[in-house]
């Protein structure tokens, strides 16, 4: 039996009909063409399907799409404003925070939620906040460093780098 639902996705109102058993991740990807949330484990372990629901991260692989009815959803596609990356995204770019990039959408949303609540988190707070997002490439330290640097917080010790010569 189909259910009609409507929600706000990346500031746009969406109305669609779906079956009750459809999973939010699959509806976003396959019905709405929003591809930044990825499927990594399909059971809520890896966090790469993370989306924001009313500003809080949820794992869209273990959410029924019908549960989104009336809610406000944000994916990585909805973060940029006027084509500009957020300061957090810019920091990730400058710190070489991602390698393959598959976990990036989830990590960026988890960090977005964290900074919203706590603009100047400590290194441990950052690690705790992103600990539900698995990354196999980076060893996390470049991610932690980028988040710590967004609001000019101190760089937590972790990854030693020489002075960066950043050019574009």
């Amino acid at each position: 039996m189909k259910k009609k639902l409507s929600f706000v996705l990346n500031d746009r109102k969406i109305t669609l009909e779906i079956a009750a058993q459809e999973v939010l991740l699959e509806v976003l990807r396959d019905k709405l063409g929003v591809k930044s949330p990825k499927c990594g484990c399909d059971r809520g372990d890896c966090g790469t399907c993370t989306v924001l629901m009313n500003g809080k991260t949820v794992r869209s692989c273990i959410v029924l799409a019908v549960e989104a009815d009336g809610q406000r959803l944000t994916t990585l596609e909805g973060l940029m404003k006027d084509g500009q990356m957020t300061p957090l995204q810019q920091s990730f770019l400058e710190h070489n925070s991602f390698q393959c990039g598959f976990c990036a959408p989830g990590v960026i949303l988890a960090a977005t939620e964290l900074l919203e609540r706590n603009p100047k988190p400590s290194g441990d707070e950052i690690k705790e906040a992103i600990s539900g997002n698995l990354c196999r490439c980076t060893g996390y330290l470049p991610i932690v460093e980028a988040i710590a640097n967004v609001n000019n917080a101190l760089t937590p010790p972790g990854r030693e780098r020489l002075g960066k010569k950043v050019r574009s």
Partner: peptide, 21 residues
């Protein structure tokens, strides 16, 4: 030199497409 990776922006904006995308 420590150039910024050229595939960084597609990965950080969600533009990078993987096979299932």
């Amino acid at each position: 030199h420590e150039e910024i990776r050229i595939d960084g922006k597609p990965k950080i904006t969600g533009a990078a497409q993987f096979v299932d995308d």
